[in-house]
């Protein structure tokens, strides 16, 4: 690990926490994914890192918490406190441009803009086509969803009619 003694503690802690990879999409860091909300230090030197879960049932949340704490401890921060932040809820809109680029590079179609929450009942649209997801390999929009869920709750399964390859898509949430 490269030591950067010139950095103030808070900045150093933030950098370390930001670089922790996501357990389910390991090409992304927690910062890329947007689940790292805040890292700050208190006057007594405690590092307080705030994380937000992606899905309610995300089985990786405890791993993320433990990974962040372990890396901060390994970097010499003795006192680490991890907080869970539920509000405002995580959205795929929080995935950074850098994160989207990495997803595409790994053959995963990044999410489009999450649906806007209007006031009142959540509308249900039956049948008909929904959004067109461009193929991360060839860019064609001649694609079709083959399954609403893939290996994890956050991804759906698609097929490209142009290059005939299957691919995953991070669902808008």
């Amino acid at each position: 690990m490269v030591t950067t003694p010139a950095l103030p503690d808070e900045q150093r802690a933030r950098r370390i926490a930001a670089e922790v990879p996501d357990p389910e999409l390991p090409m992304l860091t927690l910062a890329d994914l947007g689940v790292l909300r805040e890292v700050r230090t208190t006057p007594d030197g405690t590092v307080v890192a705030s994380l937000t879960p992606t899905y309610s049932g995300c089985p990786a949340m405890a791993e993320m918490r433990a990974d962040v704490a372990a890396r901060l401890h390994a970097a010499g921060f003795a006192q680490v406190e991890i907080r869970t932040v539920l509000d405002p809820p995580w959205s795929t809109d929080r995935i950074s441009p850098e994160g989207r680029r990495k997803l595409r590079e790994h053959g995963i179609a990044p999410p489009g803009r999450a649906p806007r929450k209007a006031a009142g009942p959540v509308p249900l649209v039956l049948g008909a086509t929904r959004q067109a997801v461009p193929c991360p390999r060839c860019g064609s929009t001649d694609t079709e969803q083959t399954s609403r869920f893939s290996a994890t709750a956050c991804r759906s399964l698609w097929r490209c009619h142009a290059c005939l390859e299957p691919f995953e898509h991070v669902k808008e949430l």
Binding site: S50, P53, P59, A60, M61, A62, E63, R65, A66, E81, I82, R83, T84, L86
Partner: peptide, 8 residues
């Protein structure tokens, strides 16, 4: 990872 889901 079945620790407190509202941890913190």
């Amino acid at each position: 990872g079945f620790s407190d889901p509202l941890h913190g």
